[in-house]
Write a protein that binds this DNA or RNA. Structure first.
Lengths: 198, 198, 198, 198
DNA sequence: AATGAATGAGTCTTCATTCAT
DNA sequence: GATGAATGAAGACTCATTCAT
């Protein structure tokens, strides 16, 4: 019974994580209710504790999912040697993932300002893969003279990721009106590279 | 200890608001502790309730401060007829205010994603003055052909304000390393108008 | 200024007592709010404490009013030598007083079952004058052979006062429909003396 | 400690109700302490909330017990066709029940004057079965010409039930001296039917 | 492994009481 | 003497966590 059991265990874990992400996204860490998370995942109150030893651990598990998958999917694509296409591919893959895991994405944004050092580190660790990828990309471009040099690649990446994040927030806050998820990648990349000037 | 002057009452209120902003910013609405807010303001735990009838009302009072002051200070300045200077003035004044009221600013950012409709409305109402100002400015510029026309002024303002917000978050998260508060306005405006390309 | 001052003090005290009776009657001892009592009496929060040293003392002062006045008014009347008329006079005077001090009367009834020994004693002391009067009256009647002898005058008085009390409760609970205050004395006395049989 | 039997759950509920009745009877609704109720029932302070969602609901549950059982027991008896015996049977059964559920009975009496409309309605609903029974009995007697006709059956029932209630109060207040529980039914019925006259 | 009853620390809120003005 | 700001004990209620079944 081992294998099936193991597989089943993973499935239960995923259901719990999905439910938890939903609650943490909507109510914050303190406001989320562990028992309700369990119930909404289709189990009884205590069941979370068979998979996570505490609320903190459950929360960490969500942040641990992170942006690795975004990077993996981006790398799996075959792209022309062109910064604009690469950046757009990144945003496209991130949007795709955010749409799949909307709740988890919201948790990240929500906890960006958390005071708890632990939480902050988890958030930073979670988005690190994406940050590293973008910084490397921009550094390469800078060294080829394609990008402005008055700002470090790190600063530029902050602006880029900031624009992505705020586009998400805007979309969530406006119930998905503008920019829509489809046009979001092109919009963000264009604003980032070309600026607003005519 | 009765019959303190009206002025004294206002001062107490401000101390409570400042303490509350700090706590809400650090721990979120649910995580903030009313008693601790009162104690950290230098009073006994029950004292908040002499000034605010509930945690909700205290929270609302913070968000009600809003961005009116930013707009007011911006309008008080005498600026050349130049989009770049106007945008930079806005960011400068906003940064100045954020530095004065850092905790309150964090509360806004933190609650952007709150699920409670009430909270979300309060946040939107709080930043409305700034949004209106920026949209008007960009619309004027668009009509003079200075800005790209493929995006609405509203979308462009989202990008602009998003970059400001994320620059704040970045600064807070990195303990003020880069971009520093001083160079932040020029950085944001340049990225917004000129883009990252060389 | 002494005399006027003294008079004024008494008036203030009475207003506070009246307001307090209202609150104690409606919400019970624990449920009554001292500050509200003061405000409803037309003063500021703390003012009660210039007249009563604690909630307990204020409460006691109400119960101390008692039934002396009922007895006094009854004795002031010139009545034929007839048990029925005497009993009816007692009820009439008590009803008159209850109508004047409805709130205080309700406090008595409400606290009949209070567990606090102090309160219970106060209630008993308050109604003692009336109990004594009725018992004496019934004893005299018994000694003249007018009343049944199988029950002590004390037991009979319990029945009599109980019927009065419950008639009040009934009247209050039914918003004064039946029995009305006017017909109440005759009804109670007749039920007590004659019974329900045809 | 999960999955206790249904029966066990009912037992816990009863223990909580008994403890609650005690507290509400002694201190009134506002004065009763939920935590203490739970502790005195032998549980931790929060346990009440696993069975009742609020203090109000717990209180209602007590009043909901009502006088149905008294009526049921009375109807189960085989009685001669005689008003006096029927009335006495009612009081006997009510006394029996009051002795079993003394605390709950006190709650009823205590809350008769409560200002909260909800509470008052609950009390009235609780005693309704008994009121209906007595009124029907008296109406039948009146139609057979056994009872005085100058008062409605409803008014007469008020007097009867009022005498019962006050006999209880008297007994509780005097620590059970007179009338004793045993002689109470005969006393009340005799006073009600025959009056005090010799 | 899942359940859900029990626990008890923790939090919002009320309010009797004090006392500076 | 009146005021009402400040206090802090107390209490209703929540919920993360434990653990017997």
């Amino acid at each position: 019974m081992a294998r099936i059991s193991k597989e089943a265990r993973v499935q239960v874990r995923l259901r719990l994580l999905a439910s938890a992400a939903q609650h943490f996204a909507e109510h914050g860490f303190k406001g989320a209710n562990i028992n309700q998370i369990s119930v909404d995942a289709g189990f009884a109150k205590g069941t979370v504790y068979n998979y996570f030893s505490s609320k903190e651990e459950l929360f960490s598990a969500i942040l641990a999912v992170g942006t690795e998958e975004t990077v993996r999917r981006y790398r799996a694509r075959d792209l022309p040697d062109n910064l604009r296409d690469h950046l757009q591919a990144i945003v496209e893959e991130d949007v795709a993932l955010v749409l799949e895991q909307e709740a988890m994405a919201k948790v990240f944004v929500r906890e960006l300002l958390s005071s708890s050092p632990t939480t902050r580190e988890l958030v930073h660790a979670g988005i690190a893969p994406l940050v590293v990828l973008v910084v490397e990309l921009l550094e390469g471009s800078q060294s080829r003279g394609e990008l402005r040099q008055d700002r470090s690649a790190t600063e530029l990446s902050t602006a880029f990721l900031g624009m992505i994040t705020m586009a998400y927030v805007q979309n969530w806050s406006s119930d998905g009106r503008r920019p829509t998820w489809e046009e979001l990648p092109a919009f963000v990349v264009s604003m980032f590279l070309d600026g607003a000037l005519a």
